[in-house]
Design a protein around this nucleic acid. Structure first.
Length: 803
RNA sequence: GCGACCGUGGCGGAACUGGCAGACGCGCCAGCCUUAGGAGCUGGUGGGGCAACCCGUGGGGGUUCGAGUCCCUCCGGUCGCACCA
């Protein structure tokens, strides 16, 4: 008997990767697919460190799903690209002293090599990078679309400023009030003109549509919380000077307990309301608050601070005059920037009132609870005509009552803010606006797009708070496109989240230079069939993509409103119980593992670590188990290639059909770990039955192909199939009756305790089962001499005798 | 503080609508083969007991003929939000 070749993954994998490329195996017909399936995974940010295990875990899981659909007869489009703009690349470039325009292509090359090596089914014809002018031309076009429809606007907003970095920081880059890169530098607050997208106008629609999406529940919850809808009322408090202070509250039922008002220090009425003798103190307080960065103001010490303005306002319910304070625990960006303080029924107001000795008046009674009572399950007291009324009803009636005097109306507020897309940095697509003294901000005409990011050798930000682009004089000064007068370019670049908010629209249309996305291609391939990615993008990326798609739909560019009808979040791969991160030094690089074990083994090992949607802890101890399994399949496959044909032994046939049933269901539900376990069980069965028949082995090869594509191809080819398994292979189907054993094991319990197991034919009647059970010695021992009070019979499962 | 999820052998993890707890794999033990093996093969492997049996899914309580699964409560962990009025 001729010997079976040694399994050398390096050779097999290189050969098949070359063949896939030569034969265009992974390139579907984009214009006339029979059954299109758009398999999308979140594109990576090409860091200098290369692809790590976490990326590969995500890509493998998504790739398995695409290959599975392919074997089920779909034409699968599985594109990949690079999210290569952004502050992360820029900071790294600054740190190593290399220009990002040189660094990024290098990183992308490395990523591309790694992505080919792991065996993803990528259609490389449609690769894209957000830094490519051919791509960001359309990112800018998108901005112009929003600008023209009033959805992009400018306003002054507070930002975090690091005096050492000389730049604006995102909130997540501020650690306890200090810069993440400079632990000794306190972050300051600056006010800058910024561009915003009006996403809040879509808050309700973004919230409502969540109900119709097939998404991981955890992701839906995160989005819902982020949008943060709350229902309440706006109440108006008049001041003696004739100013009205509007406050938003979710608890209008407690208005009789409102004993003072608090405005945010930045509130526009503060100066007007402050009495002369308080002016110095108020100004001083505002100055201190401004010195604090936004994050530490929200997160830092919770001791309440504030000052009295000297003014009193009239509580519209009681008619009483109550003092108006300012305090930084009230945020300008939420609601009206002012609150009515009800210390008896709000924890924060309670603390503040205690700190400054302000009156606390209880207006809600809840049995057995002491102040502050936050619960809404009580009834009113000390509230004139509403005493004794339950909170929810009182809330409605009080608003109606105050509405008659024009001092209240119902209101819905959202936590969601408008999307600030300005970055005062270099490495991003310039915002396509020209500022003209006469015309104001004017959009760059479409025919002049893209506004290319000029090469600026010294891209380091300075203290001015203005993007380095402003230093490039010939780029900066341009004539106004409308009136021709001397004008200047907008120097802010846009947020990376804008780059990634539409990349899935671009993929099928990358070859078209004259349109962002081709209408026919888009109609054929979108919305995305399945989107798989990490929950770290549960909020921003996914919300922004939904918003952009919604706007494009409204402007008539797409027929659909939601880009990702089906989304699955994968889990996180951790190392030693901690998230992998450079600072911890526990990042696992996959290359060495792939070198040693092969991509197929590594792919399967990652998937076998735990449930795909939950992630797992990376240890390399178990990898030999997967390799042993693939070695056995390798031998089986070669043996099958030379075996004759015969009927399958009954046991093997049943196990085969059971395995197909389980692997199909599990793979479809992304339960890859149990799908792999089922295939292992099947191989164990084949080996103990010494069965190497092609009819037993070939279905296994097809089921294994999504997981270990190279090995499956090699064995499929060894079996004499000239075409790729992904072209010629068909996902096996199973026969329910063959998968069902005709004999089953019936469990006999006495008082719920296992006492015997019987092998009986399927579908036994209760009477027959009972008779068999009673005859069993191990059962009789426990029931003899006692009357059987009750019998529970679950057909084909168990019989339980209660004595 | 609020919200979501989770807690099962030495380890990673299985267990459909409540119905044989521990699938599959790692590790470990024994045996075979070998000059040798960190290779391969066979068998075993939750704990206690010679055994019949008993005990076991973070702790306590409950519902049920029957609970890893449902309910209450406490403890521990992960993630998200975090003074959002």
């Amino acid at each position: 008997m001729s010997s079976i070749p040694v399994y050398d993954p390096q050779v097999v994998e290189a050969a098949w990767q070359a063949r896939w490329a030569d034969r265009h195996v992974n390139e579907p017909d984009l214009d006339h697919p029979r059954r299109p399936f758009y398999n999308l995974m979140m594109f990576p940010y090409p860091s200098a460190e290369g692809l790590h295990v976490g990326n590969l875990f995500a890509f493998t899981g998504a790739d398995i799903f695409g290959r599975f659909r392919r074997l089920q007869g779909f034409e699968v489009f599985e594109p990949i690209g690079f999210d290569a703009f952004g502050i992360h690349s820029e900071n790294y470039a600054l740190a190593v002293g290399t220009h990002p325009a040189k660094l990024i292509p290098r990183n992308i090359d490395a990523f591309r090599r790694q992505l080919r090596r792991f065996g993803g089914m990528f259609d490389w014809r449609h690769e894209l990078s957000t830094t490519d002018p051919a791509y960001y031309k359309w990112t800018q076009w998108l901005f112009v679309q929003l600008f023209k429809h009033g959805l992009a606007y400018r306003k002054r907003a507070a930002v975090n400023w690091c005096p050492t970095c000389k730049t604006v920081l995102a909130n997540e880059q501020v650690v306890n009030g200090y810069c993440e890169r400079h632990p000794d530098t306190k972050v300051e607050q600056r006010f800058l003109e910024q561009w915003f997208f009006g996403i809040t106008r879509y808050a309700q629609r973004l919230l409502d549509n969540l109900d119709s999406l097939d998404w991981s529940e955890s992701t839906v919850t995160l989005q819902r919380n982020w949008i943060g809808r709350s229902e309440g009322a706006t109440l108006v408090f008049e001041t003696p000077t004739g100013d009205s202070i509007a406050v938003f509250t979710t608890r209008p039922d407690t208005v009789f307990g409102a004993t003072y008002l608090v405005l945010a220090p930045e509130h526009p009425l503060v100066d007007a309301l402050t009495l002369e003798e308080r002016r110095h103190e108020v100004r001083e307080y505002k100055r201190v608050v401004q010195g604090k960065d936004i994050v530490s103001r929200k997160v830092g010490d919770r001791a309440k601070t504030g000052v009295f303005t000297g003014t009193y306002a009239r509580n519209p319910a009681t008619g009483e005059s109550i003092p108006v304070w300012i305090a930084d625990y009230v945020l300008m960006e939420y609601g009206t920037g002012a609150i009515m303080a009800v210390p008896a029924h709000d924890k924060r107001d309670f603390e503040f009132a205690q700190e400054f000795d302000l009156p606390i008046r209880q207006v809600v009674r809840v049995e057995g609870e002491s102040l502050p009572i936050v619960s809404t399950s009580g009834t009113l007291m000390q509230s004139a005509p509403f005493d004794g009324m339950p909170c929810d009803r009182a809330a409605r009636e009080i608003v109606e009552w105050l509405e008659r005097s024009g001092s209240a109306h119902r209101e819905v507020q959202y936590r969601l803010h408008d999307w600030c897309i300005s970055r005062q940095r270099y490495w991003g697509p310039p915002i396509p606006i020209i500022h003209c003294g006469a015309c104001g901000p004017v959009a760059v005409p479409d025919e002049d797009l893209p506004v290319e990011l000029p090469f600026v050798e010294d891209f380091k930000p300075d203290d001015s708070g203005v993007s380095p682009l402003a230093r490039h004089a010939e780029w900066y000064h341009v004539p106004c496109p409308r009136c021709g007068a001397a004008a200047r370019r907008e120097t802010d670049v846009s947020d990376t989240f804008l780059d990634s908010s539409w990349y899935f629209l671009r993929y099928p249309s990358t070859e078209f230079a004259d349109r962002a996305f081709d209408p026919a291609r888009t109609a054929t391939w979108l919305p995305v069939s399945t989107y798989i990615g990490g929950n770290e993008h549960a909020v921003l990326h996914l919300l922004y993509s939904r918003f952009i798609t919604m706007v494009l739909h409204e402007l008539g560019h797409t027929s659909f409103e939601e880009p990702f009808p089906k989304l699955r979040a994968h889990g996180l791969i951790v190392k030693d119980g901690a998230k992998m991160s450079k600072s911890r030094g526990n990042v696992v690089v996959p290359d060495a593992y792939i070198q040693q074990w092969g991509a197929d083994t590594f792919r399967m090992y990652l998937m076998f670590l735990g449930p795909f949607q939950e992630g797992g802890d990376f240890r390399d101890e178990g990898i030999t188990g997967i390799r042993r399994f693939l070695d056995r399949v390798w031998v089986l496959g070669h043996e099958a290639a030379r075996a004759g044909s015969a009927a399958l032994p009954a046991g093997v046939e049943r196990k085969l059909h059971q395995t197909i049933r389980k692997v199909t269901a599990d793979t479809d539900a992304l339960r890859y770990n149990t799908a792999i376990a089922a295939m292992m069980e099947y191989v164990n069965e084949l080996r103990s039955a010494e069965c190497t028949l092609p009819t037993a082995v070939e279905p296994l090869l097809v089921m294994l192909a999504p997981f270990a594509p190279h090995l499956a191809e090699e064995l499929w080819s060894a079996a004499g199939h000239p075409d790729s398994i992904f072209i010629a292979g068909r996902w096996p189907s199973y026969d329910e009756t063959l998968a069902t054993a005709e004999e089953i094991e019936l469990v006999v319990q006495v008082n719920g305790k296992l006492r015997a197991r019987l092998t009986v034919p399927r579908g036994l009647t209760e009477a027959a089962a009972l008779e068999r059970a009673r005859a069993e010695a191990g059962v009789r021992k426990f029931i003899d001499g006692k009357p059987v009070r009750k019998v529970v019979y679950v057909p084909d499962r168990l019989v339980n005798l209660v004595v």
